[in-house]
C-alpha cells in the first residue's frame, strides 16, 4: 500500500538527471521537479530495484533500460479529440483561415502515440484540406512514435473518442474512419498519408521548418518556466506571420514576453501571430 514511501531524494534525482545529460545527451534538468520525481519513483517502484546504486548503474550501462527509463518518465497519456471545444475552434475558425494557403504546414510537437495527429487529420479531411496539408508530428520518445505510425488504437476507447468527435463538431459516422480488428481500431491509411512522424527533442533540437499552425498541448506543463520560455521562442521562430500557436487547456502564453506579438483566439488556448 505505501509503495510511495520508497524514497529517492531530490539530490538523487539531480544525480540521475546529470547522468542522462552526460552519458546520453538528454537534458531533463528543466523539467518540473515534482512531476519528474514522481515518474522516477514510480519506475523505481515498478522495477523493484534493490538499491539506488543499482538503479543508477543500470540506467547508465544498459541501453535497453535507458530507453525504458525515457519512455517511463515522459508522460504519454493522450486521447483523440481531447478537449472537444478546442477541436471545434480548430475546425470552425483556425483551419478555414489557413485554407487559402497552397500548402498548409502543421507542426504537432509532443504528439505522443498519435491520437491528436489523427484527430487533426480527420478534420482536415472533412474540410477538404487534407490533400494539401502536411502534419509534422514529433516527440522525444521513439517508442510512442512507432505506435503512432501504426495508427491502431484500443477498440475500447472508440465510444469515448466518437463522443469527443461529435462534441467537436463532427457529423460523420466516426466508425467510418477505422476498421475493427479484434481489440484494435485501425485508422485508414488516407488519414496517415499526410502525417510525418519523427523524433524531435524540444529541449535540444532546432527549428526545422516554417509552419502556419503549431500545436503543442500538454507538454509545457512538464517544463519549468525557463524551459517554457525557451521552447516558446522555438515555436515563435518556427511560426509564419499570421500563423497560429495552440497550447493545452492549462497552458498559456501570458507569461512570455512574446505575448505582445500574439492575439488570442477568444475562449481557447490558441494565439495568432500578428507581428
Amino acid at each position: 500500500m505505501n509503495q510511495e514511501l520508497v524514497v529517492i531524494s531530490d539530490e538523487q534525482v539531480e544525480i540521475l538527471l546529470g547522468d542522462l545529460l552526460e552519458y546520453y545527451g538528454y537534458d531533463f534538468t528543466g523539467y518540473s521537479k515534482a512531476s519528474i520525481k514522481r515518474r522516477i519513483l514510480r519506475l523505481y517502484g515498478l522495477d523493484k530495484q534493490l538499491s539506488f546504486a543499482e538503479f543508477r548503474y543500470k540506467i547508465n550501462n544498459d541501453t535497453a533500460y535507458f530507453k525504458r527509463f525515457v519512455e517511463q518518465i515522459t508522460v504519454n497519456v493522450t486521447e483523440m479529440f481531447r478537449d472537444p471545444g478546442f477541436f471545434k475552434t480548430l475546425r470552425d475558425t483556425v483551419l478555414p483561415k489557413l485554407g487559402t494557403y497552397p500548402l498548409i504546414r502543421i507542426w504537432l510537437a509532443g504528439c505522443s502515440t498519435g491520437e491528436e495527429a489523427y484527430s487533426v487529420s480527420i478534420i482536415l479531411k472533412e474540410l477538404n484540406l487534407l490533400h494539401k496539408s502536411l502534419i509534422y508530428a514529433t516527440d522525444i520518445n521513439p517508442a510512442v512514435l512507432e505506435k503512432a505510425g501504426q495508427g491502431m488504437f484500443a477498440m475500447s476507447q472508440m465510444k469515448q473518442y466518437s463522443e469527443n468527435y461529435i462534441q467537436s463538431g463532427g457529423t460523420k459516422d466516426f466508425s467510418s474512419y477505422y476498421t475493427a480488428n479484434y481489440s484494435l481500431a485501425k485508422f485508414s491509411d488516407e488519414l496517415k498519408s499526410r502525417i510525418i512522424f519523427s523524433t524531435h527533442n524540444l529541449v535540444s533540437d532546432h527549428s526545422f521548418n516554417e509552419f502556419q499552425l503549431i500545436l503543442c498541448r500538454n507538454v509545457l506543463i512538464y517544463f519549468d518556466r525557463d524551459l517554457q520560455h525557451k521552447v516558446l521562442s522555438l515555436f515563435d521562430e518556427s511560426l509564419e506571420g499570421l500563423g497560429y500557436l495552440a497550447l493545452g487547456s492549462k497552458e498559456t502564453l501570458d507569461f512570455s514576453p512574446l505575448a505582445r506579438n500574439y492575439k488570442r483566439v477568444p475562449g481557447e488556448k490558441i494565439w495568432r501571430k500578428v507581428s
Partner: peptide, 21 residues
C-alpha cells in the same frame, strides 16, 4: 484543483499540473 490533471506541489511552493495516468 482543475479536473483531468493531477495537482503537484513543487519545492518552491508553486503548483505543477500533470496529466499522467
Amino acid at each position: 484543483a482543475p479536473s483531468d490533471y493531477h495537482t503537484l506541489i513543487e519545492k518552491d511552493r508553486s503548483f505543477s499540473l500533470d496529466c499522467s495516468e
